[in-house]
Amino acid sequence: MNKKEQALEALEQVIKEREAADRRRKAMKGSQEESIVSDWTLTQLHIVAIVKEQERANNTMLAEHLNVSKPAITKAVKKLLDQQILEKTQQADNKKEVYYRLTKSGEMLAFIHSQLHEQARNRYMRIFAEFNSTELETIIRFLHALAENIKSH
């Protein structure tokens, strides 16, 4: 088997392991934190993270920041509003523009998401520590090419 076939086989194994881990997490519901976060889409979790960090987050800003359509933001925000994770705010001098802020539940969700994000980051950093600079450059090139391939399909 040549190197390209070995690389393809390794990539397929990563995908299979990721899918199996996702199935295990859904079946077991993992930790309480993972269970809470699993109720939300990635877009919704990113919205919560952005609203936590930005003072004036609205649909336009969120769409631009996440590089998704405004209708997708509207749909994601609707559930966050319905579940009282976000609440709408308006400026006294401009009732037309709607902004969002986190509720207490939203603050908790943002904190949990941040903690899980940090744990994942630390796991990846431990893996990257096993590679030298040249190998990391190759990994980076591969991941960028993979992301572009995914985006174009």
Rank of each mutant, 00 (worst) to 15 (best):
N94F: 12
M108Q: 15
K4V: 08
E5L: 04
Y99K: 04
L143E: 12
Y100T: 02
E148Y: 09
G106N: 03
V77C: 00
A72T: 04
K26C: 11
S38R: 02
N132E: 08
K4P: 02
E33I: 01
T74D: 12
I150Y: 13
E87C: 06
K151G: 03
E9W: 09
E12V: 09
A120E: 14
N132I: 01
L80T: 00
I150P: 00
N94H: 11
E12L: 14
E135D: 11
P71N: 09
K104C: 07
Q13E: 14
T138Q: 13
S35E: 15
W40N: 00
S31V: 02
H117V: 07
Q115V: 14
G106S: 03
E97D: 13
L102N: 07
H113V: 03
M28L: 15
H46L: 02
K16I: 06
E87Q: 10
L42F: 13
S35W: 11
L11Y: 10
E19Q: 10
I36Y: 00
S152W: 08
D82M: 03
R126Y: 08
Q13M: 09
A145Y: 09
S114H: 12
L66H: 05
E135R: 01
E64C: 04
E130H: 11
R18C: 10
H65C: 09
H46Q: 06
S69A: 11
K96R: 15
I150K: 06
L102R: 03
A63H: 02
H153C: 08
L109A: 05
L102Q: 05
Q54G: 03
F142H: 02
T74C: 04
H144V: 09
Q91F: 15
L81F: 02
A57Q: 02
S114T: 12
R123E: 15
E118F: 13
V51K: 03
V37R: 02
N2V: 00
R126G: 12
A147W: 05
V77Y: 01
E135P: 01
E55H: 11
L146Y: 08
K78M: 06
T134P: 07
E97G: 05
N67E: 14
E137W: 07
T89V: 10
S105W: 05
K29W: 04
A49C: 06
S69C: 05
L86T: 01
L116K: 10
L81D: 00
Q84L: 07
K88S: 12
A129F: 14
A27V: 12
R126T: 07
L42N: 14
Q83P: 05
E148R: 09
Q44K: 00
K88A: 13
Q6D: 06
